[in-house]
Amino acid sequence: MSSQKSETSHYLDTASMLGLETMRFSTKRRIEGTFSGRHVARRQGGAGQYIDSREYSPGDDLRRLDWPAMGRTGRAYVRLYQDETNLSCLLTIDASGSMYFGARSKFDDRGSKLEWTKYFATAMTHLIALGRDQVGMSVAAEHGLQFIAPAAAPRQIRILQHEIAGLVASGRTQLGESLDDSFLRMRRRGVMMVISDFLVQPLDDVLRGMRKFRARGWETIAVHLVHPDEEVLPKGVAFRFSGMEGEPNVDCRPGDIRNVYQQRFSQHCAHVRDGLLGAGCDYRRFSTATPYLDAVRQFLVPRRG
């Protein structure tokens, strides 16, 4: 997949990403960053770029009074500056058992949704770090929630990519709990990107968590990952399907239920899409058949700043 692997993660193919490095990840929302950056900050004033003046009102900081304008007009105006700050992006990755679907074997996750997620998330951390923005990670897994606070330091990024590479999918989906946990940890506005297959019952916990971020002014992005083999049942006479998140086994003939299954899956995808869009999320659905670089490109083109 890559001819030149990074030192920290073999999921990072910098050579393939050279074309994408010019496209910086940005957001149109006003965010709250720790340092100065190229993103529009929510706060106005300070030493940012002048954008406008307005009449003075009591209580305004007298340091921002436009004295030359007052001298010319005799009326007090206050100069307004737009601060620019850095972006803080939190990647929430679903590491439930269902993300392992498509893997070659129990110990080889190649072809699985998790592998695709690792490539995609590694690429995103790389691109975000190139823009001097902070990126962190929250992993939703049954065995425990993992949280790495957003940071921009190269060392921090390597640690992050290392953690991504070491992700293991197992257990039931804990996406709702992970979002709640991240919401409590994150104080400043930023970008929340959830990468999941959203095979979670019920979906309401996830939507509620997304709405909380959205209510705080975060930009929420939902990357809905689908494996092609999930959309249709495999061809064959009979299968014993085993659940990947602890569900009981099922013996069946795919031919008997193929149509109904496809209907149910389509209904589920439509439900996820409607729910996330209703929660104010930027909804993106990708198939693992789509190369992750294409997905990154499709994602960045409308956002490049």
Partner: peptide
């Protein structure tokens, strides 16, 4: 039956 892990098994449950 051929054993096969399936992430969307609860759709199969509902269909069956």
């Amino acid at each position: 039956p051929t054993p096969l892990p399936l992430s969307t098994i609860w759709f199969v449950h509902e269909a069956i």
